[in-house]
Amino acid sequence: MSTIPHDAPAVIDARGLNKVFRDFWGRPKVRAVQDLTLEVRSGEVFGLLGPNGSGKSTTIKMLLGLLYPTSGELRVLGGSPRDAATRERLGYMPEESYLYKYLTAQETLEFYASLGGLRSRRRRQRVDEMIELVGLASARHRRVGEFSKGMARRVGFAQALIHDPDVLLLDEPTSGLDPIGCRQVKDLILDLARRGKTILVCSHYLADMQDVCDRVAILLDGRVCAQGPVRELVRQPDTWRITLEGVDDALRDRLVAYLQEQCGRPVAVEPAGRSLESLFVDVVTRQRAASPPP
């Protein structure tokens, strides 16, 4: 996570955005987004959280120019997302891998690179880079239809990056990935953010969002219920977690007694541990290093 200055320019600027889906007769059926105001600044990783049907995907589709706001103002990179020139600087990874199953991984990336406006030499170079980046070098000539869900997600991620966009819209980027893939994607998001890319992420995986996002907005029924920097939102006032190393049981008991006396209330104590994700990644990485796959 990085610290984004408050005066950084707004890359995504939505004000009072509304989206109403109407039925065949033009009667309002669903109010998918209501009075949404968002500002995503340059170089920021911004998370859109919310349960199913909260309006996250609808918001992303409006940012891509696939859906049109019913009312409100929406600017992406200073222009309308319906303009092709705006989309030249946008990359999109959908929640499912909506890819052409009959194309190989390389053909898929070449196709999207062409749509991104890359010329032949740059296109070939970029395709090679992306295939390496997402770890599909050995499967580049296999058809996407034969891929596992995780591999297809990697192709989906690579196509979003293929034309080196300034803004990335990622819908559930870690969905379907194994823990190592998740870690790689999160590391990649952080790396891209360090390189100045602006990233808007939608996800159900709150731990993943907490790992990568600078700021988040929580949507419910199309409305923003909470918005702000992740650290501020999750912080509990006057509550601290202290991690101590090299402490035996006797010292721990004395410290707990002292803290309880000072605070005047019970103190929660539990053994420190690493996350299961961290353990999994370490074990698999070590195992693979010891016996690489044929």
């Binding site: 989309r87 999109y92 991104g116």
Partner: peptide, 14 residues
């Protein structure tokens, strides 16, 4: 229908 065109339409294509 199978949403493959979403990614295409999100690219800078008229």
């Amino acid at each position: 229908q199978d949403r493959r065109l979403f990614i295409v339409l999100a690219k800078p294509v008229h």
